Simulated assay, not measured.
Amino acid sequence: MAFRADEAAQRGYEQVEAYLVPRPQDADESVRSSSKEALMDIVDEVGPVVDSYPSWHPLVCNHDKRYPEVAPSDRTRYKGLDHTRFFLNGFISCPYSESGKAEQLIESVNALPIHPIAHITAEKLDVTLYNPDATPVLVKCNWERVIGMDGMIPLSIAIPLILEQELPCWRWSELAETWESMRYYLLGSPHGARSSLFVNQETGQAIKKIWNSLIHTGMFGPIKVG
């Protein structure tokens, strides 16, 4: 089945709205309405809901280079995450207020290594999300290079970040991973054969071509079969 970005984005939004807008038994309709409005504003600001990030995305790139990560966690240097949902260029985490985790999350974001072309920020949101007793925190990837009007990441940014991450792997790699096994890490999810909510068809096709060129040099070892 062909990947349809609009449909994937709509499905993702519906799922996140159902998760982050407080249940009727936890909040009255005016609070729920404000939550929905805030959520739509967040999507306008940081892009559509996603399932996971490309492993080279600035929001998750601070991982062990031998073990790539595609979601924010303690393995990508975030602390205090709870009830978290992801967007193209940001994520929302809603720890309970009394836990103190919101402050831990903000502190961990402020302690992240400096990224060459993006600045990661965190702020508490003055709106009810997930539960009235939670403190929602919005973590944003603020690009310092021009990205697409739709928030998608252009080839001129994606390729340098991919190469910075993947080229050093030649030192320890024993087998070269095929495009089929790597596209989850290179495109993010949801994704199709050559595109995702992060990169369009043209960019994804170019990434695939470059990846296939790399593995056929033999630099990562024999191409993995099966």
Rank of each mutant, 00 (worst) to 15 (best):
Met1Gly: 01
Met1Ala: 03
Ala2Trp: 11
Arg4Trp: 00
Ala5Tyr: 02
Ala8Asn: 03
Ala9Asn: 07
Pro22Val: 07
Arg23Glu: 12
Pro24Val: 11
Gln25Ala: 08
Ala27Glu: 12
Glu29Val: 15
Ser35Trp: 07
Ser35Ile: 09
Glu37Asn: 12
Asp41His: 13
Ile42Ser: 05
Asp44Cys: 01
Glu45Met: 02
Pro48Cys: 13
Val49Tyr: 04
Val50Asn: 10
Ser52Phe: 02
Trp56Asp: 04
Trp56Pro: 02
His57Leu: 12
Leu59Trp: 09
Cys61Gln: 09
His63Ala: 10
Arg66Asn: 08
Ala71Phe: 02
Ala71Ser: 08
Pro72Glu: 10
Thr76Lys: 00
Leu81Phe: 02
His83Cys: 05
Arg85Tyr: 14
Leu88Lys: 05
Ser93Tyr: 05
Ser99Asp: 13
Lys101Gly: 11
Glu103Thr: 14
His115Gly: 12
Pro116Tyr: 08
Pro116Lys: 05
His119Ser: 10
Ile120Ala: 09
Ala122His: 04
Lys124Ile: 11
Lys124Val: 14
Asp126Ala: 12
Asp133Ser: 07
Asp133His: 00
Ala134His: 09
Thr135His: 06
Cys141Glu: 10
Asn142Gln: 13
Asn142Arg: 11
Asn142Trp: 01
Glu144Val: 00
Arg145Leu: 14
Gly151Asp: 08
Gly151His: 04
Pro154Thr: 14
Ser156Ile: 01
Ile157Met: 06
Ile157Lys: 04
Ala158Thr: 11
Glu164Gly: 11
Pro168Glu: 10
Cys169Asn: 05
Arg171Leu: 04
Glu177Pro: 06
Ser181Arg: 10
Ser181Pro: 00
Met182Gln: 04
Leu187Lys: 01
Gly188Ile: 11
Gly188Arg: 00
Pro190Phe: 05
Gly192Ser: 10
Ala193Arg: 13
Ser196Pro: 08
Leu197Tyr: 00
Val199Glu: 02
Val199Cys: 06
Ile207Trp: 07
Lys208Glu: 15
Lys208His: 12
Lys208Ala: 14
His216Thr: 13
Thr217Val: 09
Gly218Gln: 07
Phe220Tyr: 11
Phe220Ser: 01
Pro222Val: 09
Ile223Ser: 03
Gly226Arg: 05
